[in-house]
């Protein structure tokens, strides 16, 4: 299983409790999360399915490289953190 947690800042707009899902890459993991929390999708990804410009996704503390196709592999047991980027100072 993959443990997924969200930034506190997103909770003001859409409830995103921590969850455990399956998936072998970022796309599969996020699809699984949004399958049960459809409203959250548009807060994390843009219309084209890419990570929003001012959002970040980390796997075990390392930022993902592919923000467009979300192809970074996610090992079983990993922790995925969905954060907002520190933008604007």
């Amino acid at each position: 299983m993959i443990n997924v947690a969200f930034t506190d800042n997103i909770q003001r707009h859409v409830e995103c409790p921590p969850c455990a899902v399956t998936g072998s890459n970022v796309r599969e993991v996020l699809d699984a999360v949004f399958e049960t929390n459809a409203k959250a999708r548009g807060y994390v990804l843009d219309d084209a399915g890419a990570v929003r410009k001012h959002m970040n996704v980390f796997i075990n503390g390392a930022q993902i490289k592919d923000r467009t196709n979300l192809s970074d592999p996610v090992p079983d047991g990993a922790s995925v953190y969905i954060m907002q980027a520190l933008s604007g100072g």
Binding site: G42, V44, D46
Partner: peptide, 27 residues
Amino acid sequence: GHGHFGAKMHRSTDNGESFEEIATPAY
């Protein structure tokens, strides 16, 4: 327009006392 979370659309049916999120135009 949320800086981090993108643009969103809301609708009120009580003259602005409360709002509910509705669909956002998506390309």
